[in-house]
Write a protein that binds this DNA or RNA. Structure first.
Length: 367
DNA sequence: TAATCGTGGTG
DNA sequence: TCACCAAGATT
């Protein structure tokens, strides 16, 4: 039976009512639900991408103190924005948001556009986020299909499409187009996601207390634990790294900015290399530094840091050492290096892996 | 289409 | 310890 056939004898109105009533009575009190400022909805939606509500809340509150309006964020320095995002991950979200907010300030007089084509053009705003902004902020009946929605609807209609495939989202968007409440699309979309977060969870869904259990095909068939179908991802690969905390004769610390593209773009770090083989030696590290124009004394290995990303694992041996002589300004510039006071290291946005190094060597240690 | 892009929580 | 997961977008 096709989804269309399932929908023909499926109680849309009853489903909407049961879902919306449950949402009204059970929705969480979240900071971004207390207002309907499109800018604030937008920021919350970007932060919530692949990130749990509990993780986002403190970041969201702090971000709104720093950048309460489109204008405030548009006028901020990118590095300040990255610092506010530090630890939240997926840093291209911060750079894209900042870029897009500048566009809104320039091209739309600071008002977030309420048309699908315009919103979707903004950097970092894809199909889900465009739908979320339109529906939640402007109460426009547009689908906002995220992982929650695909999981819930996979079960409601007993759909076995692989939700890790890009094309699957489109099928669910067309379903939402048919079943969305035209009276309250904002609450309907949020209710679908809230149900996925609180009741229709990935493992052990709480079908017994589900407000829409009588509308659910997977529940009727007893296959709720088998849905949704999702392809497995390959395990992350390990990379051996060596990093060094270097001090010059004035006691300043050497840090380095990462490239503009790729992983952790534009964040700062301690100078490091990827070691092809595991060698208990720092000759390769020393050679790398010399290549950047730096003569150093490496003292000892003081720490190990392990950090797991989605698709790779860094295993970092951490060394300490000292710069010999005066580094040439041009050499530092060329390698995106900077000498900063020990107390100023915290002013720069670091990935968590290098925050760990900072914590151990400079804060806990006596280096 | 499939890989890339972070981090923290959970069972 | 580890596999899996979370209000995805970009290339």
């Amino acid at each position: 039976m096709t989804t269309l056939e399932k929908l023909s004898n499926w109680n849309i109105k009853g489903y909407q009512q049961d879902l919306l009533k449950w949402y009204d009575e059970n929705k969480r009190d979240l900071p971004w639900r207390r207002e309907r400022d499109p800018y604030k909805i937008w920021v919350s939606e970007i932060m919530l991408q692949q990130t749990k509500v509990d993780t986002v809340i403190p970041y969201y509150n702090r971000f709104m103190k720093f950048f309460p309006t489109v204008q405030a964020l548009a006028e901020a320095e990118e590095e300040t924005v990255l610092k506010a995002w530090e630890g939240l991950g997926y840093y291209s979200r911060a750079r894209n948001l900042h870029k897009a907010v500048k566009e809104v300030q320039e091209n739309y007089g600071g008002q977030v556009p309420a048309e699908k084509e315009e919103v979707h053009k903004l950097s970092g705003v894809g199909p889900y986020t465009a739908g979320a902004i339109l529906s939640i902020a402007f109460n426009i009946p547009a689908p906002a299909v995220d992982g929650n929605v695909m999981r819930v609807l996979s079960r409601i209609f007993s759909i076995y499409d692989d939700i890790s495939k890009a094309t699957t989202r489109k099928r669910f968007e067309s379903i939402v187009d048919e079943i969305i409440s035209k009276e309250n699309p904002s609450h309907f979309n949020q209710a679908l996601m809230e149900l996925g977060a609180l009741i229709c969870t990935p493992k052990s869904p709480a079908c017994l207390i589900c407000p829409v259990q009588e509308h659910c095909a997977a529940r009727a068939e007893g296959v709720q634990e088998l849905l949704p179908v999702k392809a497995k991802k390959s395990p992350p690969k390990k990379k051996q790294m060596k990093a060094i905390v270097l001090k010059d004769d004035a006691g300043r610390i050497l840090i380095q900015q990462r490239p503009e593209t790729g992983m952790l773009a534009k964040l700062w770090q301690f100078p490091n290399i990827e070691a092809e083989e595991v060698v208990e030696d720092y000759a390769d590290l020393k050679k790398h530094l010399l290549f950047m124009g730096l003569q150093v004394d490496i003292f000892e290995k003081v720490h190990e840091v392990r950090h797991v990303f989605t698709h790779l694992i860094w295993e970092i041996d951490v060394y300490i050492g000292e710069l010999k002589g005066m580094a040439r300004e041009a050499d530092l510039e060329l390698a995106s290096l900077r000498l900063v006071e020990k107390g100023d290291v915290d002013l720069y946005p670091f990935p968590v892996s290098h925050q760990k190094i900072n914590d151990f060597v400079l804060k806990k240690g006596d280096f």
